[in-house]
């Protein structure tokens, strides 16, 4: 393999890693850190511009002074902290044990086969989280049951629409609307001591915590464009949630009581 085709292969691998980190919910500094480690393990230097949907990277070979620039489109986002953690560990090992290109590629392939938690477990855990929220905001155990059921059905709809490749904001709206409609029914039939608490907490499984916190860390690190992009995504998600809640409350005529 000659120098330039090896460099192109390296750049493509580093782009794959950056895109994997980006969709898994890493912030921009973390991505640059990991890529920097892999790049120096391979005797290269990487400069990249990362945005929401594309990554542009120029890779320099430290010995031959060759350089190559490649662009990659980023697939849809699915937050996965196990990937971030595994890639971070691999980057340390690659640096200290001086891994070759093939070794890194193999490890990344292995990481991508790591399984997610089973769907039923996520559904139950997130619904329990919804019930927990309800307890935090002074709901009793009957309210918590309502929050559990609404979150469960809302998240189920959110996951199902993901399979049919709906637009993210439409999915957020549908999840929010379904969950808050169910909780609104409980308000109408006055179930539990604070039925409105269950309504307020039924849609919290959709909160864009990762984009908003990453947005702030990016802005603080002067990654202004990416920070703004993440903030806009977060704000759009909050907006979609609010519209869903709003519509359900309007249909069921939930008044201040």
């Amino acid at each position: 393999m000659d120098d330039s085709s090896k460099l192109i292969k390296t750049a493509d691998l580093l782009l794959d890693i950056s895109s994997l980190l980006m969709v898994s919910g890493a912030n921009t500094t973390r991505i640059n850190l990991s890529i920097g480690r892999f790049a120096s393990a391979l005797n290269t230097k990487a400069s990249s511009f990362i945005s929401h949907k594309t990554i542009v990277m120029t890779l320099y070979d430290k010995k031959t002074d060759l350089s190559c620039t490649r662009v990659k489109k980023i697939p849809p986002y699915i937050i996965n902290f196990t990937f971030i953690s595994a890639i971070s560990k691999a980057s340390w090992k690659a640096l200290s044990e001086e891994w070759s290109l093939e070794q890194i590629a193999e490890e990344i392939k292995r990481i991508q086969t790591l399984k997610r938690y089973p769907r039923w477990l996520v559904l139950i855990a997130v619904s329990l989280a919804g019930a927990g929220f309800c307890n935090i905001f002074k709901g009793d155990y009957l309210n918590m049951l309502v929050a559990f059921v609404s979150t469960f059905v809302g998240l189920y709809i959110f996951q199902e629409t993901h399979k049919h490749k709906y637009n993210l904001y439409i999915r957020i709206f549908l999840g929010s609307f379904v969950a808050s409609s169910l909780a609104s029914l409980a308000v109408i039939y006055n179930i539990g001591s604070h039925p409105s608490t269950a309504l307020a907490t039924s849609i919290l499984f959709l909160v864009p915590g990762v984009p908003l916190i990453n947005s702030f860390t990016d802005l603080m690190d002067s990654k202004i464009i990416n920070g703004m992009v993440r903030f806009t995504t977060g704000a759009m998600i909050v907006f979609a949630m609010a519209i869903g809640l709003f519509l359900a409350m309007y249909i069921f005529q939930i008044n201040l009581r």
Binding site: F81, S85, Y117, S127, A129, I136
Partner: peptide
């Protein structure tokens, strides 16, 4: 303590949604 427990459960639920590594 009850509220803290449920805060922990809520944190854990989101952790599983974000697919945190098993050892954390």
């Amino acid at each position: 303590l009850e509220v803290s427990f449920w805060s922990g459960i809520a944190a854990l639920g989101f952790g599983l949604l974000f697919n945190i590594p098993k050892n954390s």
